[in-house]
Design a protein around this nucleic acid. Structure first.
Length: 358
DNA sequence: TCTGGGGTCCTAGGACCC
DNA sequence: TCTGGGGTCCTAGGACCC
């Protein structure tokens, strides 16, 4: 039996901003796109709980957030700063774990099976971690505890904000059953609609389903849905995670069909990707161009170059070529993105996966 | 209401090789 | 003359998560 925790930082970007702007504490604070008096493009990335009182939520168009609370504090995202804070917090968390897997800038799974006596004891242990994060970094977090990753994640959702929630494996079914189906990890709006059309509305409905029906609807994903709905998951904690792709994208201030504007964007994106590749000592084999048109239709075009490279010229020339070959010239473009994949270490710095392949 | 940017994983058809 | 099966790589797109 395992004891797994998910530690999730509360409203992380906004909490980081409160940390360095103490005067903003207690006021509604929104991190995201520039609202430009309600004409801004883009969305809310994170907001604090004062902002949530006005109905502001992450992912919401920034123009709507502005409409809800014009005199909230709107700040642009400073990822370099959040990354630095994240690294320090994660180092603290890792110190409490036998196994540690960071899943995003503000979340990590840890295995503490060998650090605690039992589930009851894990509650005290979680409190220790939570207090250390608050004391040493000045940042709040929530912790979910259970026997696997999916349940720890679901428990953590119930713990927010600033709490700890334990769901013992034998409590899983009754804990999950009443929750709306899209609260289940892996169920987004499309899957929710598809399930609703067949009468499934709660996680309990899924847990009581005939798994064959779910497999008919979703293939192997149906099995996963069924297992997750019953709180069953044997996914391992992966310690040495390796990045699979690096991409950057840019939404234009105004939609455009001007090739020069697009090419300029590809060049600056290419330079950023090259910098990241060199920072991580990686080379790529495949370039993918993403175009989002004015109507939100999105197309991906990709090209493998037949060798490994970390050169900005190869990123840009291939992306521009994909643009020239495939872009629908009469259509206005809203967003352009470039991603490189098929990554491998270079300069003799082999990665773990290289050894496995060898 | 009007919709960002960073990623991951899965599927599916076709090419190509043995 | 009419025809296999497995494996891998490439490309395009969809869904999801934070």
């Amino acid at each position: 039996m395992r004891i797994i925790m998910l530690i999730d930082m509360d409203y992380f970007f906004a909490a980081c901003e409160e940390l360095r702007h103490q005067e903003l504490k207690g006021k509604p604070l929104v991190v995201g796109a520039d609202p430009k008096e309600g004409r801004g493009r883009g969305v809310v990335m994170t907001c604090n709980y004062e902002a949530r009182k006005y109905g502001i939520r992450s992912g919401m168009p920034i123009s709507i957030a502005y409409g809800l609370k014009k005199d909230a504090e709107f700040l642009p995202a400073d990822f370099d700063y959040y990354e630095r804070e994240s690294r320090e917090v994660m180092r603290t968390i890792k110190g409490y774990a036998t196994r540690f897997e960071q899943v995003s800038i503000d979340e990590a799974f840890i295995d503490v099976t060998e650090k605690v006596l039992d589930y009851q004891d894990s509650l005290q242990y979680a409190k220790k971690i939570k207090d250390a994060v608050q004391r040493d970094h000045g940042l709040p977090c929530s912790i979910g505890i259970s026997g696997n990753k999916v349940l720890a994640k679901m428990a953590c959702e119930a713990a927010k904000p600033n709490g700890i929630k334990l769901v013992k494996p034998d409590e899983a079914l009754s804990f999950l059953a009443p929750l709306p189906i899209d609260r289940l990890y892996g169920v987004g709006s499309k899957t929710r609609e598809k399930l609703a059309s067949r009468g499934y509305r709660t996680i309990g409905d899924l847990a009581n389903a005939n798994p064959m029906n779910l497999i008919d609807m979703f293939g192997v994903f149906g099995t996963e849905l069924y297992n997750n709905a019953r709180g069953m998951d044997d996914d391992e904690i992966v310690e040495n995670y390796e990045i699979k792709s690096i991409g950057r994208e840019k939404t234009f201030e105004h939609d455009t069909f001007n090739r020069d504007v697009v090419v300029d964007a590809i060049k600056s994106i290419g330079a950023e990707i090259e910098e990241e590749l060199k920072r991580q000592a990686l080379s790529f084999k495949t370039v993918t161009l993403k175009i989002r048109y004015h109507n939100f239709e999105e197309h991906l075009k990709s090209r493998s170059i037949g060798h490994y490279s970390n050169d900005v010229e190869e990123i840009v020339s291939n992306a521009v070529r994909l643009y020239d070959m495939h872009a629908e010239k009469g259509e206005q473009i809203r967003k352009i993105g470039v991603r490189v994949s098929g990554l491998i270490g270079y300069k003799g710095q082999m990665r773990m996966s290289d050894f496995v392949k060898a």
